[in-house]
């Protein structure tokens, strides 16, 4: 198995900063929507084996809600996914709408579109921040949502990356709503070519 090169510390730091600013904007978006205080952890940047993503939370079988959005321009492509463990997603829907979801499994249209909209707002804010730094406009795809086992959902997303390598550079931010009400995770995974675009744009060799 070919081990990928880890970017230099300078590059990792630059990405961390970028991730922090992006995540801060994303969370502000959510915070305004819910009228709640939200705490954000420092963005973690690392090259990790894709396998690790399958084993987050309680392993591949843990129930999650994932909103997936792709940001792209001519020379840039990044995947964003927002993960809420199932109980957190239920709480979030309740916070956003004021009532419990009709369906415990979050399969009803209404709950799904609430989560999609939250994903749209957060990922949109994150990508907007990136586009300022990258000095190019980033398009983004329509949000997609899936409520299922973590491993099953991630299959479909990571299959694209695994064509290139078994490792990926991942920017991860965790955020918690006021008083531990609800927790979520925001992931940004740029493709390897896009990384060069980022470093060129922000002037880090």
């Amino acid at each position: 198995m070919n081990l990928p090169n880890r970017p230099s510390y300078l590059r990792i730091d630059a990405l961390k900063e970028l991730g922090n600013i992006g995540a801060a904007h994303a969370v502000t978006g959510l915070s305004e929507l819910l009228k709640k205080r939200i705490d954000v952890s420092i963005t973690n940047v690392d090259v990790i084996p894709l396998q690790i993503i399958y084993n987050l939370f309680n392993g591949p079988e843990s129930m999650v809600s994932v909103v997936y959005i792709e940001g792209y321009s001519e020379d840039f492509k990044g995947m964003m996914f927002l993960i809420f463990p199932h109980p957190e997603a239920l709480k979030l829907i309740e916070l956003a709408t004021g009532k419990k979801p009709r369906d415990e499994n979050i399969k009803d249209e209404y709950s799904l579109s609430v989560l999609k909209e939250i994903g749209n707002i957060m990922c949109g804010c994150y990508l907007n921040t990136l586009s300022t730094f990258l000095k190019r406009s980033l398009m983004h795809s329509v949000p997609q949502i899936s409520n299922d086992m973590l491993g099953a959902v991630m299959d479909s997303i990571l299959v694209d990356l695994s064509l290139e390598s078994d490792y990926a550079l991942v920017l991860e931010t965790a955020f918690t709503l006021d008083k531990d009400e609800c927790k979520g995770f925001l992931f940004f995974v740029p493709t390897s070519q896009s990384l060069e675009t980022i470093f060129n744009a922000i002037g880090v060799d």
């Binding site: 997609q144 959902v153 479909s156």
Partner: peptide, 18 residues
């Protein structure tokens, strides 16, 4: 071989991998 997401506007090919 399931389709976990409905569709993706761009790069739709890969999500039909199932």
């Amino acid at each position: 071989g399931a389709k976990m997401f409905d569709s993706i506007a761009k790069g739709g090919g890969v999500l039909q991998i199932g």
